[in-house]
Amino acid sequence: MAHDHDHDHDHSELPEMDLRVRALESLLVEKGYVDPKALDIIVDTYENKVGPQNGAHVVAKAWSDPDYKKWLLEDGSEAIMSLGYSGRQGEHMEVVENTDQVHNMVVCTLCSCYPWSVLGLPPVWYKSAPYRSRAVIDPRGVLSEFGVTVADDKEVRVWDSTAEMRYLVLPQRPAGTDNWSEEQLAALVTRDSMIGTGLALSPDEVSS
């Protein structure tokens, strides 16, 4: 299929956002405010090294080790840092536990504060205005859109993150995983289950 639109194919044209980023970056680099090598490292870290697997490790350890779980719920920041995951914004981490009586979900109504050190970068829907506004007004409706049904007699708690305070949901451990290792358990912990818009996977869902 031939291109028949009126593009100049001999020369490059950069999109507007690309131009603005290049403008800002080249100025900041020239003036010595940022080091281009540091930028590469940050991008690489958040794209590849930091991600929900960090949070899954935290959750799997809490499921396996009652002492660690107790510590995690009392002082989330310290307990998470003990596994080598530290928040770069110095924010406080609070871990909220799902139980038979309570389901927790996390939102940032102002912008999109998110526990980056354990979950990586936030998904698009987390940053969208509909999620940010509706999670507080109609949490059960939002949850049902994510395929999560919460029984009427179960309380839903919505946690609104801030620059200083980030929340991580400790999902309920799935049934049928009694003798599982931490490594096996971590494979059941999804990103959404740690935001509260999902549940941990059941053993059937990973073996198939």
Binding site: L24, V34, D40, L121, V124
Partner: peptide, 22 residues
Amino acid sequence: EGPVFAEPWQAQAFAMTVALYD
């Protein structure tokens, strides 16, 4: 889970913010 950044400029903007904060 989709891509973390939809386009490279987003990753650069993100990284600049973190670098300036650092």
